[in-house]
Design a protein around this nucleic acid. Structure first.
Lengths: 144, 144
DNA sequence: GTTAAACCTATTGGAAAAGTAGGTAATTTG
DNA sequence: CAAATTACCTACTTTTCCAATAGGTTTAAC
């Protein structure tokens, strides 16, 4: 089941990459794509989602690029995946805006899926981008 | 992400159905399919998997059908889903027999996915089919 | 030998994921 | 102003996989 899509995994990797390489200015997409080995075009569509949700800001033109809007500890993994995966619900009937299942009353497994959903989101919301960063080293150019 | 497929959900529903309606003899597929509102043909392919893994036994011919091989408390949800979903791994690189990712050494998110995997399987292995059954009532025909 | 059942192989249809292509708008720099 | 650089936008293709169907074969009971 339950494969987190490449979109979600890439989004997460990129957020961590940006956190580790964050600096005063903006980071161009090209640079991130190269470091992470992701096609520029595909990455573009992922970053668009993150910008729309204000996890990043973009700036056009020379010297432009993308920048985090918060400290790395301010982003949870859950938040990032919810955006790129549309939903983290383990089954369709628990997705936001899902039609109420006509079998819900007699459904033996509904409680199970709700429990799974809680366990899942609980875990993902407990981890932040800061938790995923490599330990700081001499030579890192973080803006502290 | 992460939608448990209909195959897995059906498999689980069927196992619970069979547990609730278990009796001395065999239950024909037709009966289960009708109760659960699942196409006979599709259900067939699901039960095949469960039989191969010895969660059920099948008997052909008149009076035949399917039967549980254990007490309901002997089946964990995780076991059932692992069969029908091929894998419960949240990301491809954690699936059994997956090639070792060339980026594993520098991968910032590997630990996250492993943690998620642990949380997930921990939960699913803690719930059994017996936990999903409706409370016993007068009129139930369980074999105790 | 007829009927009822599981068992088996293959194929189709459709939807969603993954990735590509090409162009437009904003911003800096010479 | 012109050129370069960058994000932004829309649409398309390609691939993959899930869900379901179809049709036949074997086994067992009566």
């Amino acid at each position: 089941m339950a494969v987190v899509s490449t979109k979600g995994r890439y989004a997460l990797r990129v957020m961590v990459d940006m956190a580790e390489h964050r600096r005063d200015g903006y980071i161009p997409l090209k640079e991130i794509a190269q470091r992470q080995g992701i096609s520029e075009k595909y990455l573009e569509s992922i970053l668009k989602t993150l910008v729309r949700a204000r996890l990043l800001t973009g700036l056009r033109g020379k010297g432009g690029g993308y920048k985090l809007t918060r400290e790395p500890s301010g982003y949870t993994v859950g938040e990032i995946l919810r955006l790129t995966e549309d939903s983290l619900a383990p089954v369709a009937c628990l997705e936001e805006g899902a039609a109420v299942c006509p079998r819900a009353g007699e459904c033996r497994t509904l409680k199970l899926w709700k429990g799974l959903n809680d366990v899942l989101t609980g875990y993902l919301n407990s981890v932040t981008v800061a938790d995923l960063m490599a330990p700081a080293q001499a030579g890192d150019n973080y803006v502290i």
